[in-house]
Write a protein that binds this DNA or RNA. Structure first.
Length: 113
DNA sequence: TTCCTGACTTCGC
DNA sequence: AGCGAAGCCAGGA
């Protein structure tokens, strides 16, 4: 594997995440699947770990397949992620996105690039 | 190099 | 329906 490929993977993840509209959320698995990885969900999370420093990448809009805020502990403050989501009109209760199925944003369906 | 870990998902019981 | 175990890929020790 070459660095260029990894870099491309990072960039692809960022591009997809940047396309997530405010008020909607996506999942690691959906993004990984969209990028062609079989089970690269963990890699997406790993890539987003480097994206917290990038203000243009709304990493807080990415949750796990159950709509839970598993990445909240990487946002500096434990409740930072939930607050960011609430500011966008998303209801968060007990680290879990409410009405997740309804606000779920699937790049494979709603994005065509 | 081998082993362990992690912002995950899926299958089996 | 809910929980535990296995599978997955990349990086760090």
């Amino acid at each position: 594997m070459h660095k260029a490929k990894k870099q491309s993977f990072f960039n692809d993840v960022y591009e997809v995440v940047k396309c997530i509209p405010a008020g909607r959320v996506s999942t690691y698995g959906a993004i990984a699947h969209y990028l062609g990885l079989r089970s690269g969900a963990r890699m997406v999370g790993w890539a987003l770990n480097h994206a917290v420093a990038l203000p243009e990448v709304p990493a807080h809009r990415v949750v796990n397949c159950h709509g839970m805020l598993t990445g909240k502990r990487h946002f500096g403050s434990p409740d930072r992620m939930a607050e960011l989501l609430r500011q966008e009109g998303i209801q968060v209760e007990n680290d879990c996105v409410q009405d997740f199925k309804n606000i779920f944003w699937d790049p494979a369906k709603e994005l065509n690039i």
